[in-house]
Design a protein around this nucleic acid. Structure first.
Length: 289
DNA sequence: GGGTGATGAGAGCACGGAGA
DNA sequence: TCTCCGTGCTCTCATCACCC
């Protein structure tokens, strides 16, 4: 019951239509706990080198938030009546009201965010070790236990690791489905708000796995390069020298492109113009909708 | 920015005590 | 109340050249 409540509270629009049962529900409920720890986590996202979890800025903001909380507690404890106290702003339950105003000022709740990434096989192993209280010492930090669990994990054979890998694969499949549902049901303005706030934190945007955005047509040369890719003769070993291989690939395609009869190149250009018009029309339709 | 592909970098997943 | 610590695995992204 509790796990069901947690599920519904944490991510109603993700799980409402298909509430999992049994062990799967347990796994998902555990997964939801991660939302508490991480902010704006998605599978499609990785951060640039200067991640805010490591940056001094992040630490600074954390400290600020903590002190602000403490200050708030103190103020609440004083009996002095506030002469100019404004009535507490009641948050609207209407999601459309919540999403009004500047994107960056929209207060994002945990349940607004996409489902968090699923646990890997190794992390399932860690969880199990804690559940069984094996290789786990109480009274010491998780970091110390992690080292011991990692050593134990390394000792496992492939056969022993297989159940964890299978379970991780199942969780991943469920995660992908949940994520697709999330993007399908999420308000576009909510996604824009999430991305605006991610951008402010120097994080990458989240992208829909559904590929809902209309694809921009390929320019004439790119389309041509794509068609002749398999016929290009590049002598450089792409494994040994990836960059050299790519450079040679581009040059070879460019030479063939220039050697094409003008009318042939024009055919590719005309095709691009036609597709470009279709693309622009589609974009215009979506904007007006 | 769109595709081609290999590769390295790095995020994020669980866990709970400690400390700010 | 929130982040950090440490671990291994998995996955995404940027990079490189080419042209429009």
């Amino acid at each position: 019951m509790l796990s069901r409540l947690v599920l519904q509270r944490v991510s109603p629009h993700v799980f409402a239509c298909n509430v999992p049962t049994g062990g799967l529900r347990m796994a998902l409920a555990t997964r939801q706990q991660a939302v508490v720890r991480t902010f704006l986590t998605t599978a499609h996202v990785s951060e640039p080198v200067a991640s805010d979890s490591e940056s001094p800025k992040a630490k600074k903001s954390t400290t600020k938030r903590s002190s602000a909380t403490k200050t708030g507690t103190k103020k609440a404890a004083t009996k002095k009546p506030k002469a100019k106290a404004k009535p507490k702003k009641v948050e609207s339950d209407d999601p459309e009201d919540r999403l009004k105003g500047p994107l960056k000022s929209i207060k994002l709740k945990k349940e607004d965010l996409p489902p968090p990434k699923p646990a890997t096989s190794f992390f399932l192993f860690i969880r199990e070790q804690y559940e069984r209280k094996e290789n786990v010492r109480t009274g010491v930090g998780a970091a110390s236990n992690s080292s011991e669990i990692a050593a134990r994990w390394k000792e496992l054979s492939d056969t022993e690791k297989q159940p964890y890998r299978e379970k991780a694969a199942a969780l991943k499949a469920e995660y992908e489905a949940a994520r697709a549902r999330w993007f399908e049901n999420a308000d576009p303005r909510l996604i824009r708000a999430i991305n605006a706030q991610r951008k402010a934190k120097n994080r990458l945007k989240i992208h829909s796995p559904l590929g809902s955005d209309p694809r921009r047509p390929l320019p004439a040369f790119i389309q041509y390069m794509r068609e002749i890719h398999d016929t290009l003769d590049v002598s450089i070993d792409r494994h040994a020298n990836t960059q050299g291989y790519l450079a040679a690939l581009g040059k070879a395609a460019s030479e063939k492109w220039k050697a094409l009869p003008e009318e042939e190149r024009q055919r590719y250009r005309d095709e691009y113009v036609t597709k470009q018009k279709e693309y622009e029309e589609l974009r215009a339709q979506e904007k007006s909708a």
